[in-house]
Design a protein around this nucleic acid. Structure first.
Lengths: 359, 359
DNA sequence: CTGTTAGCGCCTTCAG
DNA sequence: CTGAAGGCGCTAACAG
């Protein structure tokens, strides 16, 4: 595990691909005929004679010197790197977060070290522990299931961390959360308002935290609206993706005739749209569909998908903010931010009346 | 630009968030009552007495010591980091590449430093130059337009680079390319084979390399099939995205009645699907549609989208391979790999006959 | 087999 | 205002 050392260090190290030797502070000093300390000072903008400044600048320019980031980090105790870890680097929701983090960090010249922890919880743990080697100044971790072990590992880290996800109460870690159960409720209420009664749920696996929370949110909202949750109208997809959503929708339609389908995320919803269309069912006239996450895809669907935004970008932005605050001040008390879900209505759930109005 | 030094280095540096001082080699040596060199050796698996091994291991364990990655890098001259730069971190094609690179690099315990260069070519250049500070051992750069300036900057780098994209002939850089013009030809031929004659093109901006190449490929393929390219049947979207694709398709359908639409990428195609459906046109019975890139989205479309795969994953995989080869051997001659486009047929372009067969 | 020592490249006290 | 020297944490020579 740690025998990764540079045993086979190559002779060519320290030369550009073109063969020029990589300039160092000492080289610049030699060329300028001054001490390394002076070069360092000039290059860092500390006071110096115009003459000195000139000579150093010219020498540095001539050698096209650039300070070595690693040496500087070793010395400064800061790496100017931030780790960003998501479960799945290909999931649109996490892509949106990555994008936001990247944009927020760009002007700060912090680099982003990217990790994909995978769906197994061991991946997360291994990743967090690997950070003990001190490659980053801070960490943003999107997690679907925060075990105690993970929280302990985070506490052991020498650098601050912010978790995007739901933590057990009293966890001693900065976090940004949202309540997707509430979000599902928004969708249910909207559909009920539109006159839909036979509302089905296409959920993800209930052994995941999001799956559990969304199911609960669905049942509560249905109860609150006086709708009954018929057995068989709640299907569990093998995973939160398009294909499994398609399969679950197909199975659902085999046995039942819902007039609305609430999906646990946009990918599942896209599968549902497809399954419905294949059966000649019109959306939303025959069946309304809602997704969740408000990914880019939702607006691109055919028809465009009503969905519940969980503020992925906003959460990512808040995470960056919390992290920066804490990097500045390690002593700041633990903070948690919550983003409230909101409904984004598009074609896939407009009422028939509204639909008529448009034509 | 370089006054990023650790002026405000904090006192808390070197302690975990829990307050424990961060263990160092010297600490372990002290606790074990041996020299730092011995600790280093034991931890790196070099020969040692069982007794020595035991004492060191125990001490390291007790302090839960982890070597500092930066110090090790400084010493070894290797960073165990690879930079991955794409134009747009949110574009599904680049997401697929990122995912592949991540998967390929994970077992090597190389870390990925992620950059989004943006669409402006200056972003790319600035990014490449920033790497001169030596933060990575190698670089994979997806580029849409490789200027000479960029190639020069790459040549100046002290570490190897692999470009994903089309380079001018004779460029002295490893690269992985594909010919999207050929890919468009595949789509045109397929549609013509299906009996479509009035084939339109929804292109991206022609001032981009992909836009230019795809237009050219379209015209050539049409000519080869004896189809005429009617003026007005080639539309240029403002950008390679869904919304602009929708607008362009709408404009196209206002004036013309194509029986097939070739789109410059999957996002544009999704916009086209939507515009067609809104007008009550059936896909593929009335109008066939093809996309390009074979992104995840293509299979999730409604209906599923016929598209041309440019082997994004394969290209990314090859790029990793080339980079690793060159990190092993800086002297290896410049290599280029080419991935040939292939057609992926789905519902959006099946012939009416085929369609009948299914029902 | 183990300990001592000399740097990797940089910044920052301390004298001059 | 400038130069010399020490050390960040680690590894690879060299001695013992």
């Amino acid at each position: 595990m740690q025998n990764v050392a540079g045993k086979d260090r190559r002779e060519q190290d320290g030369v550009t691909m073109a063969g020029t030797p990589k300039p160092t502070l000492a080289k610049v000093a030699e060329r300028a005929g001054v001490s390394v300390a002076s070069v360092s000072r000039v290059l860092n903008g500390l006071p110096a004679t115009p003459e000195m400044t000139k000579r150093v600048t010219e020498a540095a320019e001539a050698l096209s010197y650039v300070p070595d980031a690693f040496a500087r980090s070793l010395r400064a105790g800061r790496t100017f790197q931030v780790a960003l870890a998501v479960a799945d680097i290909g999931n649109p929701t996490y892509v949106a977060m990555m994008r936001t983090v990247e944009a927020a960090l760009r002007p700060t010249n912090y680099r982003i070290v990217l990790y994909s922890t995978g769906t197994d919880t061991d991946g997360e743990l291994a990743f967090v522990e690997s950070l003990r080697s001190g490659t980053v100044d801070g960490l943003i971790l999107q997690t679907v299931r925060a075990r105690d072990e993970l929280l302990e590992a985070l506490a052991e880290l020498p650098m601050p961390a912010v978790v995007i996800g739901n933590l057990p109460d009293g966890a001693d870690v900065d976090c940004v959360r949202t309540d997707s159960g509430l979000g599902i409720g928004l969708a249910v209420r909207h559909l009920a308002d539109m006159g839909r009664r036979r509302i089905a749920l296409l959920n993800g696996p209930v052994e995941t935290a999001p799956g559990r929370i969304r199911l609960q949110g669905f049942e509560e909202a249905m109860r609150a609206r006086g709708c009954t949750v018929e057995p068989g109208m709640v299907m569990e997809c093998a995973d939160f993706n398009h294909h499994d959503g398609y399969l679950a929708a197909a199975a659902l339609l085999e046995e039942h005739a819902p007039d609305a389908i609430v999906c646990a995320n946009d990918l599942i919803a896209m599968g549902a749209l497809r399954a419905l269309t294949e059966r000649g069912l019109r959306i939303p006239q025959d069946v309304a569909v809602t997704g969740m996450d408000d990914t880019d895809l939702a607006a691109m669907c055919n028809p465009p998908l009503t969905t519940v935004s969980l503020g992925a970008e906003e959460r990512a932005g808040l995470a960056v903010e919390l992290l920066r605050e804490r990097i500045e001040d390690h002593e700041r008390p633990v903070a948690c931010r919550e983003v409230v879900p909101s409904l984004v209505v598009r074609e896939s759930s407009r009422s028939v009346d509204q639909f008529m109005d448009r034509s």
